[in-house]
Nucleic acid binder design. Structure first.
Length: 336
DNA sequence: AAGTAAGGCGAGTAGGATCC
DNA sequence: GGATCCTACTCGCCTTACTT
């Protein structure tokens, strides 16, 4: 962390002159002010919010780096944010939201300015550009999501690979022999978002294990996208009878699209989803789903952070096992 | 057990020294 | 003697150590 004394040394003045130059509370020559401003810029100095507090005191604030990028379903993100905030309050902390637009810069700003004691990081990519920074900072962090190389980090997530497998196992158990995954929007895969990639891996490997035909279709949101993907699925896989959806806002539009094409759910087509349980339960036809336990993940993340702040060793990786809840959208494959 | 003092540390500031 | 800059101190306030 760059301190006012570092700026003073670089500018060739005393710390007090830096303070006056920046606050304007005393006249400082233009030349000196310029030297101070140059030093501030060169060193990347930011005043430390906790500077007036005794050493070791904490802000009682947790930062939450929240994804609000394209392809991210805001209501799901909100569930995570609420669970983190609720768990944080239970540990006498408040939550500071960092929008993803700031990326690494937002995390660095929070760390340098002492604005938060620790940070929860969401929307983790397999090769996430924030990881080197998180490893180098003294600011404790917990990732909701598991990157390709989690060494030196603390991660918690649903076991999305197992979730993908569980959906296929369920469909295969009902006799379905041709299945498709309707996934998240394409940009989520382009970003190599960890959970989406792992779900695809689990889906594909389980289909191979059961020796059933499978395809994967990233899909945007909205009725037009649902209609387009439904038409494409039936065109390319006429024998399709099982669909896994990993795209929360697409559930109802997709059910509608299949029905418009003359397919009944679950009579002709069984549908499972990986999404928060309330989303699946409140669909027009309640959908059999593997729950994304947003509340539990948020709570776990905060609990891990609190343990880290207290110096208690924590596991590097916590993967919650998937649980499938049967609802009205799946049934045994109809006899041909 | 209860009360008191010290310590920690970066930023801010009053008073005064220095310079031209 | 005004402008500029520095020294030495204060502030914040909880935890820890020490004293009563």
């Amino acid at each position: 962390m760059v301190k006012i004394t570092d700026v003073a040394r670089r500018a060739g003045v005393s710390p007090s002159t830096v303070s006056y130059a920046l606050s304007g509370k005393r006249p400082i020559s233009d030349a000196t002010r310029r030297r101070v401003q140059d030093a501030v810029r060169e060193l990347g100095y930011r005043p430390h919010a906790g500077a007036r507090s005794p050493a070791g005191r904490r802000s009682k604030v947790l930062a939450l780096a929240v994804p609000l990028r394209s392809g991210v379903h805001v209501p799901v993100v909100t569930r995570f944010a609420v669970s983190v905030a609720t768990a944080a309050r239970a540990h006498d902390h408040d939550v500071l939201l960092l929008t993803q637009g700031e990326g690494e810069e937002g995390i660095r700003r929070v760390a340098d300015a002492g604005l938060a004691d620790a940070v929860v990081v969401m929307d983790v990519q397999l090769q996430d550009p924030r990881l080197p920074l998180l490893r180098s900072l003294s600011l404790p962090s917990v990732l909701i999501g598991v990157p390709a190389e989690p060494d030196g980090l603390t991660c918690v997530d649903l076991d999305f690979r197992a979730a993908g497998e569980l959906c296929v196992d369920h469909l295969a158990g009902l006799g379905h022999r041709v299945v498709a995954l309707v996934g998240s929007p394409p940009e989520v895969y382009v970003r190599r978002t960890a959970f989406a990639r792992r779900l695809v891996q689990g889906f594909t490997s389980a289909a191979d294990r059961h020796r059933i035909a499978s395809t994967v279709h990233p899909c945007g949101t909205g009725r037009d996208a649902a209609r387009a993907v439904a038409e494409r699925l039936l065109r390319e896989q006429p024998a399709l009878t099982g669909v896994v959806v990993h795209n929360e806002p697409l559930l109802d539009p997709l059910i509608d699209a299949f029905e418009r094409l003359g397919l009944r759910v679950p009579g002709d087509l069984s549908l499972t989803a990986v999404c928060p349980a309330p989303v699946a339960a409140s669909a027009r036809i309640p959908v059999t789903s593997v729950a994304v336990p947003s509340a539990e993940l948020g709570t776990r993340a905060v609990h891990l952070l609190v343990q880290k702040l207290s110096g208690t060793p924590v596991p590097q990786r916590t993967l919650l096992p998937p649980r499938l809840t049967e609802r009205a959208s799946t049934a045994a494959r109809a006899a041909a």
